[in-house]
């Protein structure tokens, strides 16, 4: 099967259309100051204008940016059979509070990392599971390959869209890098319980 999607520890067909707005013309925030700006320096978001210009593709199932969903909720709900949402790794968790829907009404929630070395995705996984009590498929999107998978899985993610050009079959093995882990997570007890 030619697929880049790993879910529940196996390669599965990817029938989700992932909508990514073009941000290449957006302004990158430069000034650091208070915390929010601090977190955003060097980052950019699609503007409302960009989001309003996104043409919704023909598909059955889509994953759309949460920012787009908030702007075009009705259109998206009407057009698609199933829809999930995703956030940028530099988005605030608070963005979810603008949703009128229960987060668990979405079958998929994604977190996007532009660069492999961006470790915010792991903490966001923890927060989405713990603070927002999200129960369904949490998906890693973007610059994702074998070497993040073990950590991502332990941070609450259960599906991974492997970056194009990277061997997804090999990546799958990354989930088995270690047989044991010292520390506990939201779903696993620490190793000391077994000792």
């Amino acid at each position: 099967m030619d697929t880049q999607l790993i879910k529940n520890k196996e390669l599965v067909l990817n029938d989700w259309f992932w909508i990514v707005p073009d941000t290449s013309n957006e302004e990158v925030k430069k000034q650091a100051g208070k915390v929010v700006q601090f977190k955003l320096t060097g980052e950019c978001f699609p503007s409302d204008a960009t989001l309003n210009n996104v043409i919704l593709p023909e598909a059955e199932k889509v994953i759309v940016p949460l920012r787009l969903f908030l702007l075009q909720t009705d259109k998206i709900k009407k057009k698609y059979k199933e829809y999930g949402i995703w956030i940028y790794s530099h988005d605030e968790l608070d963005l979810f509070s603008h949703l009128k829907e229960d987060i668990n009404s979405f079958p998929v929630v994604g977190v996007y990392v532009e660069k492999f070395a961006d470790g915010r995705i792991y903490s966001l996984g923890n927060l989405i599971r713990r603070k927002l009590s999200y129960k369904n498929d949490l998906r890693a999107l973007g610059d994702v390959f074998k070497d993040q998978l073990f950590y991502l899985a332990r941070s609450g993610f259960d599906s991974f869209l492997i970056k194009d050009g990277y061997d997804a079959k090999k990546a799958l093995l990354g989930l088995e890098d270690f047989s044991y882990s010292y520390q506990g997570t939201l779903s696993q007890k620490p190793l000391w319980g077994e000792r």
Binding site: F116, D118, G119, R154, S155, F178, Y182, Q183, L191
Partner: peptide
């Protein structure tokens, strides 16, 4: 032990 391969903190700023 706790900090070894802590899943959240492999790629800090």
């Amino acid at each position: 032990q706790w900090s070894t391969f802590h899943p959240e903190f492999a790629l800090l700023p």
